[in-house]
Write a protein that binds this DNA or RNA. Sequence first.
RNA 1: GGCGCCAUACCCAAGUGGUUAAGGGAGAGGUUUGCAAAACCUCCAUUCCCCGGUUCGAGUCCGGGUGGCGCCUCCA
Length: 492
Amino acid sequence: MAAPFRLYNTLTRRVEPFEPVKPGHVGIYCCGMTVYDDCHAGHARAFIIFDAFVRRLRARGWSVRFVRNYTDVDDKIIHRANERGEDPAALADRYVAAFARDAAALGLAPPDAEPRVTTSMDDIVAMIERLVGQGHAYAVDGNVWFAVRTAPRYGQLSGQAVDALGSSADPDSGKRDPLDFALWKSARAGDPSWPSPWGPGRPGWHIECSAMAARHLGETIDIHGGGLDLVFPHHENEVAQSECAHGARFSNWFMHNGLLTMPGGRKMGKSEGNAFTVVDLTAAWPAEAIRLYYLQNHYRSPLAWTPDSIAESLAMLDRLVEAREVASRMTGDGEAARLLTDLGADAAEVWRLGNAFEAAFHAALDDDFNTAAALGLAFELARAVNRFANHKRAAAVGAPVVAPALRALALLPPHLGLLQTDVGTWQAELAAKVLPRRGTSANAVDALVADRTAARNGRDWARADALRTELDALGIAVMDRDGHTTWRVRVT
RNA sequence: GGCGCCAUACCCAAGUGGUUAAGGGAGAGGUUUGCAAAACCUCCAUUCCCCGGUUCGAGUCCGGGUGGCGCCUCCA
């Protein structure tokens, strides 16, 4: 059982020691995709952050139940389907499949449950009936509205005072108060609809999450997550509905990730016409480079997207992978204490940092999930490994000295989902994704390298250098090491 | 107008009032190398947007500016 950690809570606007309702068990609900379009880099930030966060909780010894929904009934879906002359359900199914593909490509661990609105309709209707029965909601002409002013603490999450909220109410809606929002919308001709006590219709946007969270995690959940843009109205309304319906706290923590912004300062979004889709990103770059890009930044900070972002992250990841490879190639089984005195200060330093890593790593991640600080430690360790590796005897006898460093780096896969592949797989993925953009392929590079090796064997340095120049132009770094030649894709 | 967030080097970026302000990328010089690459070493913020204040001590706390951003019923 791990120690409690500190986590920022949007409800209190403070970093607080995290305590789940049931000791050792954590229930997390995360708002997933509204499936009317492809997942973009902004969505990916949220999904990767919560994926890493859940991995971290589990690796720390918590038992976690993680639920992420699909919103597959929604006005935007209907609108998009009508534009395309497509059946809304078919369109939603198509984008559910697209998201599943993107999630797999990003290396997201599957949630414990992925409920959909269409399969949660009974729970949704039951919850609305309950709210109507309690006087928190009322039906008008087949619509059901939530009476915002009956929710005692409305505004608690977003810090909005009820009376300060503006309204854009449609005067013909039948709402008693402009702030009231829809729990159930009556079907217009051609809309997808489900039967209900108020006639055929579909759920409003917020009630689904309240119903699904209660179904899969109980009336009080530990952490509710999502993008900062969901705080109001979505999460505020979820709180109101759930707390009125259940008479219990809805979620003890709200965890919101900062948004991705574009260079012009504008938010990334399809409506802005500036979205980078995950299908394109994952085709172009190794998934872990994308993950590292997001985890280098604190999850709550706004993050400006720049074209070089992923390339830089790839260079960083490459550095960690290479350092781990260098360390893992070392052999020897001497006594560490003896080796440290023989091998000098650099050995002592990599030993020290390796042994100190775990505590510092946990301290960083326990401090409001500070992945950037935790990764900084890994880079410090990588440099110490490389510095030690420069010693003539390190490769032959250094294994015991770098053993703590390897144990330290082995924390990255379970805790953050980084460094999950071995160096061969990594380089192959990199080559397969990056080389086509440069108009070449791994096979073509192999052939050029083979030619160069032949030239070198014949001591034809001019030809060898000409081939190096050619490879260099393709962004290939060729390394002659220990009597044989290897190559890798240069990323910056 | 209401609610809130942010400002650290050429770029990205961490930073719990207290030793030399993490880490990465780019750049310059060096070691190494047939030449390279990678790696390592050195250099790259006497200073944290500005002005006040609290304090023995402020990047960190408070107040006021300036600039940027988010939400205020489409949003991850």
